[in-house]
Write a protein that binds this DNA or RNA. Sequence first.
DNA 1: GTAATAGTGTCTTTCAGACAATATCGA
DNA 2: TCGATATTGTCTGAAAGACACTATTAC
Lengths: 226, 226
Amino acid sequence: MPHPPFAVTVDLVVLTVRAGRFCVLLVERGEDPFAGRLALPGGFVHIDEDLPDAAVRELAEETGTGEGVHLEQLATYGTPGRDPRMRTVSVAWLALAPDLPEPTAGTDAAAAHFVPLDDLDERRLAFDHAAILRDGVERARAKIEYSPLATAFCDTEFTVAQLRAVYEAVWGHPLDPRNFHRKVTRTPGFLDETDRTSTVDGGRPARLFRRGTLEVLSPPLTRGDS
Amino acid sequence: MPHPPFAVTVDLVVLTVRAGRFCVLLVERGEDPFAGRLALPGGFVHIDEDLPDAAVRELAEETGTGEGVHLEQLATYGTPGRDPRMRTVSVAWLALAPDLPEPTAGTDAAAAHFVPLDDLDERRLAFDHAAILRDGVERARAKIEYSPLATAFCDTEFTVAQLRAVYEAVWGHPLDPRNFHRKVTRTPGFLDETDRTSTVDGGRPARLFRRGTLEVLSPPLTRGDS
DNA sequence: GTAATAGTGTCTTTCAGACAATATCGA
DNA sequence: TCGATATTGTCTGAAAGACACTATTAC
């Protein structure tokens, strides 16, 4: 039985919503292969390191912290030749983060930036990262339908309008504020009401909520495809 | 940059429905580690081989064929020590198969058998295969809700009752035949009607259907949790 | 005829989508 | 006062769950 020398890496699809835009964290590569192209943050898994630990470590290296960030395994990519240097198998992870401060440039060699997905020409991406990113974005779009995961894009306390803005940015189309409000506030366990309100968006003060304990929404929210 | 020597394997969660029972394909291990225990079929990925190709190859080795079998990547498992011999990262795949003839014992060293999940004591499983199996079963249970994937457990042509039997076996509880019939036959694209009928289950002959072109059911079928 | 299974129809409830109306703030 | 946003309510249509009823076979 052979057990050939594979290199194993983790790649991160870190998504956030900034100013109403759905964004992904990308680094500009300084070296070949793909020098000057954009890449998902990632790196080698250490020989004695568990896969989630490697993902958390890379996330902390790129964003400074993993506080309040949802992290889940996405899929694994291992086509021969995907990295021209050696045979690598990359375990991709999906991270959903609230609007973080711009990543600290000092930590890693290359600076990482959040890029709005609408502005991104995916041909600028290195390796097979365009495919990984597509899979991550589709997973996020699908998963906020039937889970309360959209709250991972919000701060600890948030208004219904802020949560709605997340859905609108991720799905790319507007939702009816009144029906959305009814759905999220009347699904038991989705949101926990606080006794505070927020005025930052003008108009009548909006109640602040926290994420509830519910894990699965049934029936789900619907993208409506329109 | 280190690129340590990992071994990369594929493991298969091959599920089927036999005689109304939800079953998984398992092999009995002949050698240590875990000699005598049950394991998911699998093996090493060749150094020049793509991951889906390795999964298809292992599936053919264990079942004789991959005809009509749905195959999708499940998740990747790489905790240090999961294989006591070396550091391995295993890409697990989920396969949904119609009721195959009992696997040909001659192909591989160990004989593979379909074991009803109800009869399986998961402590008999080797490595971390109990966790992989749980994830695969949960994926299958969830996915037949919103996709026409339950048809992968059926032959090319099947009756509504046979399809319902698949749902009942996978979810583990009975469904109302009349409401189920309405749902699957009146969801456009789910099923294609043929001009043939079947009498094998007694009673009035049942129309035979084939899988339609629909990929996503919305609204989905519901497990009903009851 | 009876037994068995296939398939249709009907009623009720839940819920999404459309949108009117009211509430509470700042200017 | 007005303008903006929050929140509640109302109507309608789609669809699930419960279940009566009809249809077509084997015996």
